[in-house]
Each structure stands twice: as structure tokens, then as C-alpha cells.
């Protein structure tokens, strides 16, 4: 579960969307939810510019924003907001 840091094949620059959360429980559950639905998602330190609310945020493939938002709603996920926030 901890492992060595994965040399993530996913390039964060390809994941331009960020979901911000109030608490880490929900961020981690959402990571699983998106992955189970075949949507690339990576947990990142929550960018301060977006939200001070939680230490962890979730980067995802912005091109699939529509699916992501409907999954969040369908699963009653407690999230703060969905942002377009490309890697700087």
C-alpha cells in the first residue's frame, strides 16, 4: 500500500482538472471511484490557490469532466469544487 513512489506513467500535465475536497477521506474514496470507472486520477498536495480546505486534492483528466461530475453526484461525494487548473 505504501511501496516505493511509483514512477507514475501518468504525466500530470495531461490531467488538467483538479477536484478539491474538505477532508482526505473523501479525496481518497473519489480516487478509487474514478479509477474504477477507468478515469485517470492522481492525488496531489492541495494547491493553496484553489482551496485551503484539505491537504489533498485529486488531479483528473479534464476531457472527462462531464463523466466525473456525474459520478460525483451519483455517489453523493462530499467535495468542494471542480477546477480547471493545469500544471504550472
Amino acid at each position: 500500500m505504501f511501496g516505493k513512489p511509483k514512477r507514475n506513467k501518468i504525466d500530470l500535465r495531461d490531467l488538467e482538472g483538479v477536484i478539491s475536497f474538505f477532508g482526505s477521506h473523501h479525496a481518497i474514496r473519489t480516487e478509487g471511484l474514478l479509477k474504477r470507472n477507468g478515469i485517470k486520477a492522481v492525488l496531489i498536495p492541495g494547491p493553496r490557490e484553489i482551496s485551503p480546505n484539505c491537504g489533498v486534492a485529486l488531479r483528473f483528466d479534464w476531457q472527462r469532466k462531464g463523466e466525473v461530475v456525474s459520478l460525483l453526484k451519483e455517489h453523493l461525494v462530499h467535495y468542494e469544487d471542480v477546477h480547471y487548473y493545469p500544471e504550472q
Binding site: 500500500m1 513512489p5 492525488l43 491537504g55 489533498v56
Partner: peptide, 14 residues
């Protein structure tokens, strides 16, 4: 858990 976005923190939160 939940304090940071680095691997150990995320691992603990998991």
C-alpha cells in the same frame, strides 16, 4: 493521514 499530499501521508490516509 490527510495532513499532506506526499506519499507517506496519502498512504496513511489510504
Amino acid at each position: 493521514p490527510g495532513r499532506s499530499g506526499h506519499g507517506r501521508s496519502i498512504g496513511a490516509a489510504r
